[in-house]
Amino acid sequence: MNIDLTGKSALVTGSTGGIGYAVARELARLGASVAVNGRTGERVEAAIAQLKSEVPDGQFIPAVGSVSSAEGVDALVASLPAVDILINNAGIFEPRPFFEIEDREWQRFFDVNVMSGIRLSRAYTPGMVERGWGRVVFIASESGINIPVEMVHYGMTKTAQLAISRGLAETVGGSGVTVNSVLPGPTLTEGVAEFLKSMGGAGADLDQVGREFIAENRPTSLIKRLASAEEVASMVAYLCTPAASATTGAALRVDGGVLRSIA
């Protein structure tokens, strides 16, 4: 199985922590040169330093800037004109009752979670097509199918990502470029860890609190626990390799079986 990414370049948005960080690490382990993206130089530098300690032979370059606006994306693309692999990971979430979500919040979530991927895919995918090889992955969520009542605006953006991913895959069919989306379920990232600590107290056993959260809020989970960022990153990294060349236009679940569906 060919999973070697030596000589390939990648951009992972929102990669100073969480799933994005784990994906950047896995791609570097497979040989890719990885552009680490975050909103501030300090966070990007700290992430790269940590990544280098974990992958000593890894190649990492800073890609500082917010992808939540057209101007931010333009600046990022100007500093990084071409990549072989694009991971649209940057995103925000926040529980809020539907009737309390104002217009500006709907727009903010759409700009960060949806338009960032649209703009970056529009900028980078044509070059991939010209070179005859490329990978685009959208980090969506099982919430795009199973809309969470506590954050409908977030679920809406994840549904949109699924549509965009499939549509772009159709657009570049036969070019050697694959486009897929990955649907994580509840995942233990830094933000989720802080949330769990607030639920269970400073000395909380995160694994146990996580299992209790799943039992109460996602009872259909088959693994009965939170996934790790590394488990999600393994799927993403595989999709970026030559071994996954026949997988495109797909929505692949890393949701622990939360979605009760056979397809």
Rank of each mutant, 00 (worst) to 15 (best):
F93V: 10
F110H: 15
R253A: 14
P56V: 10
R29H: 03
G176Q: 12
E54H: 07
M235C: 14
R122A: 14
E212C: 07
S198K: 14
L120K: 13
R253I: 00
P184L: 02
F138G: 03
W106T: 07
A90I: 11
A233G: 07
F138Q: 03
H153F: 03
V149R: 14
D4W: 08
L188G: 08
E231I: 01
G256M: 07
S15Y: 01
W133C: 13
F138T: 00
S33V: 12
A46H: 03
A244P: 12
A123M: 07
L222A: 13
G58R: 05
A47M: 09
D205R: 12
L51D: 04
P242S: 04
V149S: 12
V12H: 05
L259Q: 12
I19F: 06
R119I: 06
A22G: 01
A140F: 12
C240F: 03
N2C: 11
P95S: 08
G91L: 10
T220E: 13
R39A: 02
T40H: 04
G20S: 09
Q50M: 12
G134T: 06
L30P: 00
G203I: 04
V179A: 11
I262V: 15
H153M: 09
A90W: 02
G72M: 05
V55G: 03
L188Y: 07
L196I: 11
Y154R: 00
K197G: 02
A229E: 03
V112K: 08
N146V: 13
A202L: 03
R119L: 14
M1Y: 14
E71K: 11
A250K: 06
R96N: 09
E130K: 15
V172W: 12
Y21P: 04
L80E: 08
R253S: 10
S165P: 01
E216K: 15
G38K: 11
V129M: 12
L27H: 03
M115L: 14
E230N: 12
A22C: 05
G38A: 10
F93E: 10
E71Q: 14
G65V: 01
E130N: 06
M199H: 02
I262H: 12
R43V: 02
D255Y: 09
G210P: 00
L5C: 10
C240D: 04
R25I: 01
E230F: 06
L206A: 04
L188C: 02
A263C: 12
E105K: 11
T247N: 07
F195E: 04
G257E: 02
F138S: 05
D103V: 05
L86H: 06
T247R: 11
L120S: 13
L27Q: 09
S228P: 02
G144Q: 00
S245I: 14
